[in-house]
């Protein structure tokens, strides 16, 4: 039983660290390695497209991981590393689209749709309210004209 639990625990622990980064790629400097990992998580593997290079086992992903580390060791800042990749692979290399002119519609689109819907709804309720106001007072009670007509109709039915 004890061996079974131990085995199970080991399986769980091993699956936790099932990442694509190979031991030979890891940098000696823990600080640089941390930066490299943080960058890799946001860089798209262009072969498998919805994976980051940190997760992917593809050959190109490995090359890019090594490249990111090399550039960090050479003293590049995080943005310099990203700019280097974007210059060669385009914005698509970033998993999160950058915030700039051509992507404004992507970032603001949902907000614009929401605002338009809110305006539409406001106009709709506004109009309903004025229709009520035209018909009688704003509380929705019948106007004196309407009350008169109603009694006349009811009287007729009674008679």
């Amino acid at each position: 039983m004890k061996a079974f639990v131990l085995g199970l625990t080991m399986i769980f622990l091993s699956s936790l660290s099932a990442l694509a980064v190979n031991p030979d790629e890891v940098l000696d400097d823990p600080l640089l390695e941390k930066r490299a990992r943080a960058l890799s998580v946001n860089i798209r593997c262009l072969v498998c497209q919805n994976q980051s290079i940190d997760d992917s086992n593809a050959d190109l992903a490995r090359d890019l991981r090594v490249l990111v580390r090399e550039r960090l060791v050479a003293g590049d800042s995080d943005t310099e590393v990203l700019d280097y990749l974007i210059a060669r692979y385009g914005d698509f290399v970033m998993l999160k689209p950058p915030f700039k002119g051509s992507t404004y519609i992507l970032w603001f689109g949902p907000l614009i749709v929401f605002i338009l819907a809110a305006i539409g709804l406001a106009v709709y309720f506004r109009r309903r309210q004025t229709e009520y106001a035209d018909a009688g007072d704003s509380t929705g009670r019948l106007s004196s004209d309407e009350r008169e007509r109603l009694t006349r109709l009811l009287d007729r039915e009674d008679g």
Partner: peptide
């Protein structure tokens, strides 16, 4: 051999 020039060209496949 290293694929580095490929990266320079933006080769992904």
């Amino acid at each position: 051999l290293s694929g580095r020039v490929g990266i320079e060209w933006g080769v992904y496949g």
